[in-house]
Amino acid sequence: MSLRRPASAQTIPSSARKPGDRSSRRALWLGLAFASPFIIGFLFLFAYPIAASAFYSFTDFNLFQTPRWVGLDNYSQMFGNPTFWQSLGNTLYLTVIGVPLAIIISLAGAHLLNFPVKGQPLYRALVYLPSIVPIVVGGYLWRWLLNTQYGFLNYFLGLFGIDGPAWLQEPDWTKPAILLMTFWTVGGTTIIYLAALKDVPQELYEAAEIDGAGAWRRFLNVTWPMISPVTLFQVIVTLIAFLQIFTQPFILAQQRLNTPSAGPGGSMLTFAMSLYQNAFAFLKMGYASGMAWILFVLTLVITLIVLATSKKWVHSANN
């Protein structure tokens, strides 16, 4: 399982010599020298900023004046603030609906791309293609597709007798619009699934077929357990991506002259967007730092919950 593999000890060269040994000290210097770019990077781009961010979250700080210590004020303001809860709600809406659907779509897509038919490399390339399109381009492209008068989406819906909504103007429809756009770029997830499907030993299917299992049974009894470690990885990666979603809603909600926008009725304001606006449009750096910490803790807790439940549904190769 990709996420855990590095933590297992066997891959780390264990030092046979005792510390303090001459060559061990030489190795230490060598290691530090080779790792020095990242050690510097870690100190300046991670360690200090994390600590600083925690500090700022307890201050009132607008970028120009020195930070003023306010204790837990930013956090108590946050919890009493409907915009905070709305942005959290929007983000959880996207995550709770988006993650399972993205996983299902990718898995279904991978199944199709695994069919024994000619031209699969081409189909696979086409499915992945949207993932290399710059996200800003994707945003404008979807704004155009979702246009109520000239867009293709409502035109196609019309062919089925469905009167398409005003996707980006009606608060109830903006989040489905964001989801549609994100599902268009599940090509990466699909390709990881495709690789996993190809790794499932063929004998297992043959054995199941002899037992008289139909396609659905074979999927439940063979495929799903065999790919469950990959699913765990995908769920975590997709989850983190959705919890931090920024550019898609930001572009879909963009207004003339780039005034701070949250979409109709605030329906597109995600947590990361709200954080950006507080920091760079309202210059409330302290408050925004507090939001960043909430996001950090939220991501951590949800990831740990998923990992904790994974023992129940992730099939381990050992047993």
Partner: peptide
């Protein structure tokens, strides 16, 4: 780590 955590500092 969410990039938002380090963005401001």
């Amino acid at each position: 780590l969410p990039p938002q955590v380090t963005m401001i500092p």
